[in-house]
Design a protein around this nucleic acid. Sequence first.
DNA 1: CGAGCAATTGAACGCTGTCAACCCGAGTGG
DNA 2: CCACTCGGGTTGACAGCGTTCAATTGCTCG
Lengths: 254, 254
Amino acid sequence: MEALLSAIGRNENGQPALHRFFDHCAGDGALREELVRIAHVRGFSSGETIVGEGEESGLVGTVISGVLRVQKTMPDGRQQIVGLLFAPNLFGRVFSRVSPVAIEAATDCRLCCFSRIAFESFLARHPAVEHDVMLAVLDELDAAQEWMLLLGCQAVQEKVASFLLMILRQADAGGRPRRRRRIVDVPISRHDMAVYLGTTTETISRTIQDFARRGVLRVINPQRFEVLDVAGLAFLSGRVAEPGDIDEPSRKSA
Amino acid sequence: MEALLSAIGRNENGQPALHRFFDHCAGDGALREELVRIAHVRGFSSGETIVGEGEESGLVGTVISGVLRVQKTMPDGRQQIVGLLFAPNLFGRVFSRVSPVAIEAATDCRLCCFSRIAFESFLARHPAVEHDVMLAVLDELDAAQEWMLLLGCQAVQEKVASFLLMILRQADAGGRPRRRRRIVDVPISRHDMAVYLGTTTETISRTIQDFARRGVLRVINPQRFEVLDVAGLAFLSGRVAEPGDIDEPSRKSA
DNA sequence: CGAGCAATTGAACGCTGTCAACCCGAGTGG
DNA sequence: CCACTCGGGTTGACAGCGTTCAATTGCTCG
């Protein structure tokens, strides 16, 4: 039981694994006890499906380690990744019988799982925790809208640059606070990157090699790059005004 | 006060204007009284900004009539509409000081507005209502993910067809239950359509004329079409398997 | 060592964005 | 009543980006 408790309390990077729930549970032993009673930690290996698209949404929970991909598929097989979930994100569709998206393990991973029904009943009994879940959902909505901007009006170059920057931020924010080692570990395959960015593996590959040729980054191996010019990458992402640009809304002293 | 009450209770189509909140308010006079006290109905004309992108998110509320567009803009001016809000949808970013998106009137419209702060404090006092807000946010997330599938992997033809079908569903579900008159009233300009679909006005125009040439629809005027072949449109949207398709995941006997 | 998969590279086609001209209805003023 | 203007919509020509198809390389695993 001790192992489970600590697994729920902290993930491998020392991050709270229950997301914001931990805030409440930490100060309330009974609450935490109750949560632990309905939780179970499960491992999934890369490629496994946690919840199928359009299927009964039986499981919800949080990511302890690894990466989940949230994706949708069209009748003819084309697919789009609509989100990536890192620790300590929530996964699963609460308050809906069916999940409109598939949730799959993009890497080997460990999840803190709850039966959706049990979790919902827990939330009903603890509005403060439900409030935290809402905040998490709102964050996810923000992220989705951000990604729609990328899908809708960025060129492939900009998409790839934005993606790499996102991974970089993710690594900075998440566990290891190695300060700006500029090493990007892409936790997913080229194919997944392509599906996430709404393009193809070939184009991704070309773009990355192009970045390397321009000296923006160095390819250590297909999943691992060193960013040589963060500002350059940011510029290529199209998300920042270029140096000589006079459009930046916030404090440009120069 | 009577006018305000009824305005909040019902919109012009007889739909509940307070979304699901009405469910609780209807059975609880005091709750409704309290809500009315902090609500105010405001009209906005097409093009007006309700909340700016990255600005203080002071207003939240619901759409009584008209259409709002939720959009994001890149530093260089490119923009993407990440959502359209019809009655009785919620608008505004609760529980965040700044709004990551701009909210603008796509048509003349009437809104039931609350100060975000006052609304949040109302929610804090009434968890059941907050729960309903969460359900609304979850719906919005589903819609966003659905739209990402469209932006990421549909061709322009499919995007336009999907959009028209969405408007058709919207009209069917919303107020007037005119059963399948197959008339599509596009409530937004070609430019907004283009920005929503992640393409250009020219391409939109070409595609619609093409649909007309193929006999799928008839153009009554630029904002008004008659759909002559709903099934055909659905097929063009790519969201349904074609009649002779043997790829449908469910029960393929062969 | 060979099989198999992921990643890369190459070549060619086509969708769709860009630029430009034109059409049309509404509003305006003579 | 008509000429003018203006904005939104439509149409045309064309080029470029990115997909598609195909071949090659490189790595992992049996």
